[in-house]
């Protein structure tokens, strides 16, 4: 079970990122706990400057825009 956090202040790109992660995780049958982080102080605590950012199990794996589909697939391959 992976904990996935999407950092972002609620813009369109953040929603697209969440939707993309949900779809890809489902396709790969990966169990994830998806969480939206919208609080600015919390976002900044990860040191991310350009949103949306993605954090998996406490590690920042992406920042600045909707991630490429291939990149997201890489996160959920066993």
């Amino acid at each position: 079970m992976k904990t996935v956090k999407v950092l972002g202040t609620g813009c369109a790109n953040c929603r697209n990122t969440i939707a993309l992660i949900e779809t890809v995780a489902k396709e790969h049958g990966a169990q994830i706990a998806l969480e939206k982080v919208e609080d600015l102080q919390a976002i900044m605590s990860y040191g991310v400057m350009s949103t949306p950012g993605v954090v998996i199990d406490g590690r920042v794996v992406h920042a600045g825009g909707v991630p490429q589909r291939e990149k997201v697939e890489g996160w959920f391959q066993a």
Partner: peptide, 15 residues
């Protein structure tokens, strides 16, 4: 630098 108004604040603080 790529910029979108929704990341203005994180960028501001990051700087």
């Amino acid at each position: 630098t790529p910029f979108c108004s929704c990341s203005a604040v994180p960028l501001f603080i990051g700087f």
